[in-house]
Write a protein that binds this DNA or RNA. Structure first.
Lengths: 296, 296
DNA sequence: CCATGTGATACTTTTAAGATATCGCCTTCA
DNA sequence: TGAAGGCGATATCTTAAAAGTATCACATGG
């Protein structure tokens, strides 16, 4: 029936592989059942009535839903009670909550088909709205679309990285503005725009404009660049666990800048799988926070 | 199919009013199409497989959506949902029937998306024919296209406005030709050509050519211009309700000029939404007329 | 061990969907 | 203006899919 959008009964009938009279009958029967005309018959074809215009997208939705029903049955038969496609921006993995969430979910819902992809925040949001991803870990920026809902918020505290030979490298803590005159080793803004902007903003709040020197290809290689004396930097505290010879990590005194992290899903999401994922995310974050408290 | 939740083929078949063998066949065919078993056949009945469990809610959703599709088509056919784009010429709002119609329609058909635009009569008619507007309140002039149909006709009676200091300002009523030698305060013809022409025509019928003096920027500011002595004018009776100090409103004796008002739609209009709008317009006009009669 | 209830199978009947031929209507182009 | 061609509606016939009937095979439970 969704084929009569052709606006010509004869051609539409040919398209579905039946004759024109049976199609006319089908439409007549359908109109009788509904109790309203869907098409206005003209001398040179047909056009949709208001009712037809309203009915067409619904009809399409039904066909789509039928296909989904079939697919979900097939997946269930394979022992997979569903699928979730998770995206993350590269810097998100520095917050240990992200891998923890993913592991916890995969363990708890082993039957769910799980796919994971890395892309910049902006692209993640785009793909989320295009229904190509279901949940994305992002660095929230200014204009995150209204179509998404952020269900988890966390912050990655940062830490200063200095070369061993640096005059300040023996300090226990440093205020951020101690780095005012230094050259900064950062990463290409495209590799993590939200994260990048958070760092710059933190420096500005500390009262100086960071001087960007050499750019490291990835966030993980910043420490190596610092080690060979290309400048100083600030990185997520988590990265201090990676032992890079030739650098010193120094806690930040005063206002500690932090990179914000969020888990975004579609605002109108109804799938229970995805809801389970966000619930798992929140639970994992809480349990991780508790562990840290007790460990310290 | 959503009936096999009964967990017993025989009873389920009875429930849908067919025999057990046909139901078995239907389910076998469906399972073949999906490529997975939906039921596990037991000696004493049947139970849902994982695939079946996943399929059942989807199947229910399809039936629900089919019903929704039907309902939304019916609503659209009744004109209870959809969109209507209404235009009006600026002076139309002086006739209280226009806002009354709009309010009554929006209240009665709250689900209909309603847009309202102001433009000169000529432009309204043009946009009506180009299918950019659906119904327009206009001041009908000479050559209103043949493609439109006027479904409502009303008249705005007019009233004379004089400055308080004017020698005639104490009169109870005045014939229009008493203003023959006066300077008239009107408005730019572009602000309401049909209305403007109605005023000029009324003067000519009264036997004189009005002398146009200062032009007020809008119709509503005519009274203020009159108050400061820039001339006399005639305005819709409705405007006498706006209390402007320094003016006197005086009823017109003899042939009272009136600005004509019409509601135009496309001649070949079929949309029930728009028909509902014109019907509501006529009804509102009637009820308003009755209220006035009883009130006086 | 047989009565009972389950779904599957084989076959017939019925119904509804599709094919064919034709009609009436309107547009269009000569 | 009038014949041709394209449109959907209608009538009738044909066919294929759904439903009905009878029966089977297999469990279970008294």
């Amino acid at each position: 029936m969704a084929v009569a959008e052709e606006l010509n009964f004869t051609r539409a009938a040919r398209k579905v592989g039946i004759g024109q009279p049976p199609l006319s009958n089908q439409i007549r029967d359908l109109e009788n059942e509904i109790g309203a005309a869907l098409f206005r018959r003209l001398s040179n074809g047909a056009e949709l009535t208001e009712a037809g215009k309203a009915f067409l997208p619904e009809a399409r939705a039904i066909l789509l839903q039928a296909e989904q029903a079939k697919q979900s049955a097939i997946r269930a038969a394979r022992g997979q009670s569903g699928r979730i496609r998770v995206g993350y921006t590269s810097s998100a993995v520095f917050n240990p909550v992200v891998p923890a969430i993913v592991n916890a979910f995969r363990e708890k819902y082993a039957a769910v088909e799980f796919s994971l992809e890395e892309a910049p925040t902006a692209q993640l949001l785009e793909r989320l709205e295009r229904d190509e991803l279901d949940a994305v870990f992002i660095r929230p920026g200014s204009g995150d679309g209204l179509q998404v809902r952020c269900r988890l918020r966390a912050e990655d505290p940062m830490i200063i990285v200095l070369p061993e030979r640096h005059p300040l490298s023996e300090a226990q803590t440093l205020r951020l503005d101690a780095l005012a005159g230094e050259s900064f080793v950062l990463f290409p803004r495209e590799a993590g725009a939200g994260f990048f902007d958070d760092i710059i903003a933190a420096c500005r709040r500390a009262g100086f404009e960071p001087q960007l020197a050499q750019s490291a290809p990835q966030i993980t290689s910043i420490a190596s660049f610092v080690a060979v004396g290309l400048g100083v930097s600030i990185v997520p505290t988590e990265m201090a666990k990676i032992n890079v010879p030739g650098v010193r990590y120094i806690a930040i005194a005063g206002e500690a800048p932090a990179a914000r992290l969020a888990l975004a899903t579609r605002r109108d999401e109804r799938s229970s799988i995805i809801r389970n994922f966000t619930a798992q995310a929140i639970a994992t974050q809480k349990s991780l926070a508790n562990n840290n408290q007790t460990a310290e």
